[in-house]
Design a protein around this nucleic acid. Structure first.
Lengths: 201, 201
DNA sequence: GCTTTAATGTTAACGAAGTTAACATAAGAA
DNA sequence: TTCTTATGTTAACTTCGTTAACATTAAAGC
């Protein structure tokens, strides 16, 4: 009787870790519990990962990759700059709402330190590159002056900020999207909101 | 020799907890360490607080109160609606930047559950009331129709979202405010950014 | 095929943490 | 003064992250 576990422990651990993370967050992800659930000894995970941070890093990497993919899809959905920014913001929030724990993991402070996990840093950089490229690149025909480029950059930050804020506030329950409306419509409405007063009497 | 500690243990614990929280966050706040630092037995904190969450709740309550105060100051700084929204946003981000750990505590998931700490819930509600009142109340003379009210509410959410996003991204180091610029100016610039494209050719 | 070695498991231990129970002392009410 | 309550203390229990020491499997070299 093979008392030892065979091959695929690493992947099983990762999948189980995802499951725990999804419904309890990083706090609930205990290595010992993970090992127990996986049916493996309590020290086994350490053969495959660099401790708890190692597992979180692995999960975070795949989360970043999915995040970047979905952003790219949104960015590719239209050629129009304004529409693209909106689509990106909606995709950004949608990812957060559909994967709140992953979103918190990749942005929060329980994310393992980037300088200790180069692959994690790469994954993060890539995701934000996608974001920034898609927001800053206006239609290619238009050559930009320097000030135009600065404006575009500021716009990117502003768009990113609002999307991030909506995402955070929604997954933290501070904003409750109306039940009778598509989430994406609600988000798009917020994203498009212009704060400048039209013309005060 | 009085082996026992005298009166003010609760306040000393709270102050020490603040100190730990400020430079290590809730994760580094261990009850045992807190007790050791305060020079009191390891079980003593349980006589004054409902466990770790109890201490975090107490700290969060005072954080909410300071937050609300500063928002009110900003809201009272001007009568003009647009300026008020901007000032509020700047104050919001400023609080986050000056008190990142407190900001994370009151918004993040390590915040004790609101339904278990009524005073915490009250403090939170009050802060957001201040926010919403200040953002949605346009000049009183103008009576609002229903759709105008809805628009004002949406604007409040949009403004709040962007301020929150900026705050989060800045304290998480994802956005680095330019060193050669006042933080408030940077924030005001972002808050005022309109995403709609002027007039595409 | 046999032996050596690296990879992968296991058990057992250490220290730190949150929490609670059982007990001790102080302070105030009766 | 005595009884009661608030406040401390010590000691224990459980869980956790992590590591050391040992066991087994599988692969590489001969």
């Amino acid at each position: 009787m093979s008392k030892y576990h065979h091959g695929d422990v690493r992947n099983v651990l990762l999948q189980q870790a995802e499951n725990i993370l999804i419904d309890e967050g990083p706090a609930g992800l205990s290595l010992r519990r993970l090992a127990r659930l996986t049916g493996v000894s309590e020290a086994a995970p350490y053969r495959h990962f660099d401790g708890k941070d190692g597992i979180l890093a692995a999960v975070a990497i795949s989360a970043f990759e999915r995040f970047a993919e979905q952003l790219e899809v949104a960015a590719a959905s239209t050629e129009n700059h304004e529409e693209r920014v909106m689509a990106l913001g909606a995709a950004y929030v949608q990812f957060a709402v559909e994967n709140p724990q992953h979103f918190r993991l990749i942005f929060g402070r329980e994310r393992p330190p980037l300088d200790q996990y180069p692959e994690l840093r790469d994954a993060a950089d890539n995701a934000f590159d996608v974001l920034q490229r898609a927001v800053t690149s206006v239609d290619r025909k238009a050559e930009m002056t320097l000030t135009e480029a600065a404006t575009a950059y500021n716009r990117a930050l502003a768009a990113w900020s609002r999307a991030h804020g909506i995402a955070m506030l929604v997954i933290d329950g501070m904003i409750v999207p109306p039940a009778d409306q598509e989430l994406s419509n609600f988000v798009l409405g917020l994203l498009a909101e212009d704060l400048t007063i039209p013309a005060s009497a």
